[in-house]
Design a binder for these strands. Sequence first.
DNA 1: TTTGTCAATAGGAATTATTCGCATTTAGAA
DNA 2: TTCTAAATGCGAATAATTCCTATTGACAAA
Lengths: 128, 128
Amino acid sequence: MEQRAKHFKKRDAILNCVKCTKVHPSADWVFAQLKPEISNLSLGTVYRNLALFKEQGLIVSLGTVKGIERFDGNVDPHVHFICNECGCVLDLESVGIPESLKESIGRENGLVVNNCTLTFNGLCSQCK
Amino acid sequence: MEQRAKHFKKRDAILNCVKCTKVHPSADWVFAQLKPEISNLSLGTVYRNLALFKEQGLIVSLGTVKGIERFDGNVDPHVHFICNECGCVLDLESVGIPESLKESIGRENGLVVNNCTLTFNGLCSQCK
DNA sequence: TTTGTCAATAGGAATTATTCGCATTTAGAA
DNA sequence: TTCTAAATGCGAATAATTCCTATTGACAAA
């Protein structure tokens, strides 16, 4: 960790930013959060590193909300709620993902099933 | 229907195109399908009408696959499989959507839950 | 038939999120 | 210090989608 303290300062800051928030951020949100403390940070670096983390499985993509890709630092399978009005994303802790179906679905349909997402849409408590 | 036969010819053709295919098409796919038979069709018209149908609930959006929005003319809740390699979208008829959860989730979390999507990802039979 | 009206459309410009290319910087090794 | 390779900054490029405006088409009234 000390070894890479300086060299990967920005990279680590970006990962940390995604890992330590529950807002399921966009690239732009991460950039806006970090820019004040890292003044010479560029948006391209944020995009580049988010793509890298996603590839490495350190974070996951939730797909796009209103045309903007959103990420989640929590890679454990869990259920999301997305507000159609404000675009906020919430975790629904109480609901389980039917992970167990992956194997049987793959077998029955001749597919390789890696992943499973369950998402609810509607209006959040502030927008309803 | 006869009354609007001519006036809404393109609009009807676009809706019909989405309703009568199982490929879960993109705007561009619909345009490519219809262009040969309706030579003076423009891509903007396809986008505009798809947005309208979505708003009216005649079709649903599946979100984006590889950055491109995909639609489904089947508005009954059902489960999808998306291939990460080729981007094809399949219906998984045998799996049920936990529609019943909508009400209780909404009540427990103070949300208005309109919709629920369950999607599996992986590799289709051709790409695996 | 002609004319008026208004919605639907074509076509291209504009927008916007994201990616790319390349010069520069940085950390760490020699 | 010098070298190397990875990481970054920054502006240009890309691509999906939306916007703008002139035109077209259907229908009703004269």
